[in-house]
Write a protein that binds this DNA or RNA. Structure first.
Lengths: 259, 259
DNA sequence: TCGACCTGTGAAAATCCTGTGAAAGCAGGC
DNA sequence: GCCTGCTTTCACAGGATTTTCACAGGTCGA
């Protein structure tokens, strides 16, 4: 394993002794940390782009469970570790089921806390060794990550940031069907609220821009009840019905429509 | 969302009491479990396609660390939980750094062990929604999970989401008879109402689509009063035009008929 | 062989899902 | 503050999918 990128951690605890020692060590390890002695609104946590959260629910008061549930629901990728003084098996089980990743008991050795925070954040790292290589080409499209833009020939699609990120995600998983939740989670960075149509709307925008500069190609396919799949497909085969040869991909797509 | 996929767990421990209780509970939860009282070679673990591994390093003897390191290195997607009697902070930290996901202390409540196993598999699963293994092949069928679709040759069956999930479930339990209640529970995610015929209806749809693209094969078999069993069976006892060899599965089916 | 149960079927009815246009909400620059 | 471009939210229309029903045909045990 190579060196992990710095971890962004938030600590919600009012045990100043513990917090201080912890801060010292995490800083030494190069982590970025923010400490709070009270709940941090979930929206703010989202904005902080955290990797891990360490929290002592006793400082949350009554609504601790509710709070933890909301946080875990909203940030499924966030590593959440609870660290508290006394707890019953039932509480721990409830917490873990809720989405908490680890539950440790005070007093605990800061080194162990750190090791556990690292363990819960580890998943992130495996994410994607994005190919540094050249631009991605798909159909008539050329996606240049370095410019945050896609081109057809030398003409830019004029994508906004979100549009670009969405397109990039889709193109990176070319051929695979991606579900809306997953897309949202990866592009927006937090869980999609039930009933949110943002993904659909952005797909439409992408399609419009793609159609405008590259008619004759179909890039994004809808899979009803599931999500979308990116797969450049040339439409121009003059007579679809009689064409005597088609690439395997085309053939497959023709017959399967975009289900 | 619907049901969490069943978790495949392996337990390496010789504390028969603990193991037994655990097995009882995981079975009730629908997990697939295998228990061993000694180390399981990493290669074998890979083949088992596990989600989680619970291990007491004391049964591993001298080479415990080495073993754990190899397992964690080889199976980055596997959730590994150590459960042992005594341990020092240093050991735990070493283990967690090594790639272990959680370290709990015996005696521990089985419910908590399960909750923690769930938590680590949840995390691991999210980390890589990747194309688990290649496509599943059965008879002339090819089931591609990454496309939410099944194919015969390059032609899609055009399955809807439910149809696909049903087919996938059946195929995953190839050879086993599944009861309607169980099927419903796993595909729909909640209990089947008395008298609900949905499963039957979807089985019919699947059969129709299968028949259309792969006549000459029989995939889904009815077990009167029980449920359905998926087992590809070539109907034409003559020599199939395209295959001159029979898989063990096929051979077995020929002899056992469908009930 | 006869009834009591199950399962297969076709089709109507009820739901759910996606595409779309447009308005409302926001954030940054002038 | 005002403008401008981007994002989010809404409501509706048209389809696709799922559920539900009623009935026909099969299977099993007595």
């Amino acid at each position: 394993m190579n060196q992990q990128q710095t971890i962004r951690l938030a600590v919600i605890d009012d045990d100043s002794g513990f917090v201080t020692v912890l801060a010292k060590r995490t800083e030494a390890a190069g982590w970025q940390q923010r400490t709070s002695s009270g709940a941090i609104p979930p929206e703010e946590l989202v904005a902080m782009k955290l990797n891990a959260l360490l929290v002592d629910p006793t400082v949350l008061g009554e609504d601790a469970w509710l709070y933890l549930e909301r946080v875990c629901g909203m940030l499924p990728d966030l590593g959440v570790v609870v660290c508290t003084e006394r707890s019953t098996v039932a509480q721990r089980v409830r917490g873990l089921r809720l989405g908490i990743d680890d539950w440790i008991t005070k007093p605990c050795h800061p080194e162990e806390a750190i090791a556990r925070l690292e363990a819960v954040s580890r998943r992130r790292r495996r994410a994607r060794p994005r190919v540094e290589a050249g631009p991605v080409v798909a159909g008539e499209l050329e996606i240049r990550a370095d410019r945050f833009q896609a081109f057809v020939g030398e003409v830019s699609l004029d994508l906004t940031r979100r549009e670009f990120e969405l397109l990039q995600l889709l193109a990176d998983s070319q051929g695979q069907v991606l579900e809306r939740e997953g897309i949202y989670q990866r592009v927006w960075g937090y869980a999609m609220a039930h009933g949110d149509r943002s993904v659909d709307v952005f797909i439409r925008k992408l399609r419009q821009k793609l159609e405008k500069l590259s008619p004759g190609w179909s890039y994004i396919h809808t899979h009803f009840g599931v999500g979308y799949r990116f797969d450049p497909e040339s439409l121009d085969s003059k007579q679809p019905l009689h064409s005597s040869f088609t690439s395997p991909t085309q053939a497959r797509n023709k017959l399967s429509l975009s289900r």
